[in-house]
Computed example of a mutant assay.
Amino acid sequence: MPRPKHLCVLPCGGLLPEHFAPWTSSDLAPYVHYVPEELSGSHAFKPLFDGFIFNGIGSRPGRFMYPMYAAFGAAADQSDWLLWIDSLFAPGCNLDALNSLADRPLNVWVSIPYPQMLYTNFGKLNGRELHFMSAKDRYEAVEWWIDQFLERWNQVGNDFGNLGLRGFLWQRESIDKHDEPLVKMTNRFIASEGYHSLWLPQYGAYGAVKFSMLGFNDAAIHANYYGNAGMGVEWINHAAIMARSCGAGFQIICGKGILYNDTHFLDYLNLGLPEKNGYASSHLLVYQFPNQRLGDLSKKQPEDYERLYAFISGAYCKTSYPGIDY
């Protein structure tokens, strides 16, 4: 498959019970194709994203695989890691739902559950209880999970005619000295299986500038710019410089909630144009839509949905707004 350029993160699970609803074909339709409201019900849809990252936050309420949520519940154990695989392959949703919409080749990435350090109750492998205080046990659990996922993929992958498994996402957004050996071993194993590894680090995160030395095939930088969090648009500029200097891609954020103002999405689009930071033509762009789904955005803010399509298709022009200073 060709190397993906525009990937979209699909969060699976979260802090609230309703976050655990699986992705259905109706949920995914406005991600796979540009479906403006006036064309709803017709077949005049145009391609939108060409790759999707299924990012497992948790497979059941109160149990989290995603490290940023560790303080809000219990660490996911072996059964949760297996439930994550079950949910990905559940009939009529997630991978199966995406496949039902795929009228062209689409790339798929899947997040690896993060082995929380100091967790001592993961479960047994090969008759032995794993304790994540041990670096060896952490790696053993990760390799086992990848094997389990690939076994399922190999059983049903031929049924997913236009879906291609591109590789795996490392979830933690900073890689410190405790995780670095684990990450390198994991990425070597992924490569040995014929797949790629992807990382989505925060701007300035430990290890981000040396992502390729850690064995990642691709990385995309998150600028930490939200609009209402005290950081100005210069964070986009600085993060874009960092991404360019280390050969990484970039993340485009369109969020909803107290952290996000009404113009942050426009800032990401405007500052990606060739006359600004130029990441609109970067080798890899990853899009996140925190606290909302594109179906809602397309109905409530159709102009932003149209701008998203224009940006992906290369037709976007700068959008001004009151108070813009660049």
Results as ranks from 00 to 15, higher is better:
Ile252Trp: 07
Ile252Val: 15
Gly232Ala: 02
Ala239Glu: 08
Asn291Ser: 15
His238Gln: 12
Tyr195Asp: 05
His196Leu: 08
Gly255Arg: 02
Glu303Leu: 11
Tyr206Ala: 14
Gly227His: 13
Gly314Pro: 00
Ser192Asp: 09
Gln288Ala: 03
Tyr305Ile: 13
Gly314Trp: 00
Leu284Pro: 07
Gln288Gly: 05
Leu285Ser: 13
Cys254Met: 05
Val233Glu: 12
Glu234Gln: 12
Asn277Thr: 13
Ile253Asn: 11
His238Ala: 10
Ala239Gln: 10
Ala229Arg: 11
Ala240Lys: 13
Lys276Phe: 13
Gly227Leu: 12
Met242Lys: 00
Gly272Tyr: 02
Ala239His: 11
Gly257Thr: 06
Ile221Pro: 05
Leu200Ala: 07
Lys210Ser: 12
Gln301His: 14
Gly257Pro: 07
Pro302Gln: 08
Ser197Phe: 05
Ile312Thr: 07
Asn291Phe: 15
Ala208Gly: 01
Ser192Met: 04
Gly204Pro: 01
Lys318Asn: 00
Ala191His: 15
Asp304Pro: 00
Asn261Ser: 02
Arg293Leu: 07
Phe216Asp: 06
Leu269Asp: 01
Gly230Lys: 06
Gly232Trp: 01
Ala205Glu: 07
Pro201Ile: 08
Tyr206Thr: 15
Trp199Met: 06
Leu200Cys: 10
Glu275Arg: 13
Pro201Gly: 08
Asp262Val: 00
Val183Ala: 11
Ala208Phe: 04
Pro274Phe: 09
Ala240Tyr: 11
His264Ile: 05
Gly295Phe: 03
Ala223Thr: 09
Gly207Pro: 10
Tyr268Ile: 01
Ala205Gln: 09
Ala191Gln: 12
Gly257Ser: 06
Tyr316Thr: 06
Ser197Ala: 14
Gly204Trp: 06
Leu308Thr: 11
Leu198Arg: 11
Ser298Gly: 02
Gly278Asn: 06
Gln288Phe: 00
Tyr226Pro: 02
Gln251Gly: 00
Asp296Gln: 15
Gln251Met: 12
Asn277Met: 12
Arg293Val: 15
Arg244Ser: 15
Val183Cys: 04
Lys256His: 04
Asn291Gln: 14
Tyr225Ile: 03
Glu275Leu: 01
Gly272Pro: 03
Pro201His: 10
Leu214Lys: 04
Ser212Asp: 13
Pro201Cys: 14
Phe250His: 10
Asn237Met: 02
Leu294Lys: 14
Gly314Asn: 00
Gly194Glu: 11
Tyr260Lys: 02
Tyr279Asn: 05
Met185Asp: 12
Tyr226Gln: 10
Val286Glu: 04
Ala315Asp: 14
Cys246Glu: 08
Ile312Tyr: 09
Gly227Ser: 10
Thr319Asn: 03
Gly257Asp: 08
Pro201Gln: 11
Leu308Asp: 07
Gln288Arg: 12
Ala229His: 09
Gln292Glu: 12
Glu193Cys: 10
Asn187Arg: 04
Ile221Asn: 06
Gly230Val: 08
Asp304Glu: 02
Phe265Thr: 14
Gly207Phe: 06
Val233Asp: 09
Cys317Arg: 15
Leu294Asp: 07
Ser282Phe: 13
Ser245Glu: 14
Leu266Tyr: 10
Leu297Trp: 02
His283Trp: 03
Lys184Asn: 02
Ala248Trp: 11
Tyr321Asn: 06
Gly227Val: 08
Leu273His: 09
Gly230Trp: 07
Glu234Ser: 09
Ala208Leu: 04
Gly247His: 08
Tyr287Val: 08
Met213Lys: 15
Gly232Leu: 01
Trp235Cys: 07
Lys318His: 03
Gln292His: 02
Gly278Ala: 05
Tyr321Lys: 12
Leu285Pro: 05
Met242Cys: 04
Ile190Lys: 00
Ala219Pro: 04
Pro201Phe: 07
Asn187Asp: 01
